[in-house]
């Protein structure tokens, strides 16, 4: 087997992963009023991680990102359920959401909603599940 030459793909990946991660966070943040949200933000984040796994190898990425993605998925589902149940503790229906307008230092008048917490849980669940599926298929151990 000839020696592999990965200079171009690795150089492109180091730049492109930053762009894809920024775009994923933008999709996640803009999900309240515009197209986007937790699910598609998590999928874009997972595609950036898959690009890392493709360009480098499993050992290198696991040494630098020491996360068990099954635990990430479980924590995401737990966060989503807890934000739903937390509304019931305050005598509101399940999955009730509240929002308000606050004055922040840099952004000015900003709308903050509790649906973002639920979306964080959804995004973590999607990232954990998709990376676990890809690793289970791709890892021949």
């Amino acid at each position: 087997m000839k020696k592999s030459n990965d200079v171009i793909i690795r150089s492109v990946t180091k730049v492109a992963v930053v762009i894809i991660l920024t775009f994923a966070i933008n999709l996640f943040i803009s999900g309240h009023h515009q197209p986007g949200g937790g699910f598609i933000g998590g999928l874009a984040f997972a595609s950036a991680l898959i690009l890392l796994f493709l360009a480098f190898d499993i050992e290198t990425v696991r040494n630098h990102i020491p996360l068990d993605f099954k635990v990430v998925a479980a924590v995401g589902v737990l966060i989503s359920v807890l934000t739903g149940v937390g509304a019931m503790l305050l005598d509101h229906p399940f999955l009730f959401q509240a929002f308000g307008y606050f004055k922040l230092p840099i952004f000015g008048k900003t709308e903050l909603a509790t649906a973002v917490l639920f979306d964080i849980g959804v995004a973590l669940a999607v990232i954990g599940t998709s990376i676990t599926i890809i690793m289970t298929i791709g890892d021949d151990r």
Binding site: L54, D57, I58, T60, I134, G138, D139
Partner: peptide, 9 residues
């Protein structure tokens, strides 16, 4: 192979 296991070189 799509995703390699170890550093190949």
């Amino acid at each position: 192979v799509v995703i390699e296991r170890k550093q190949s070189d």
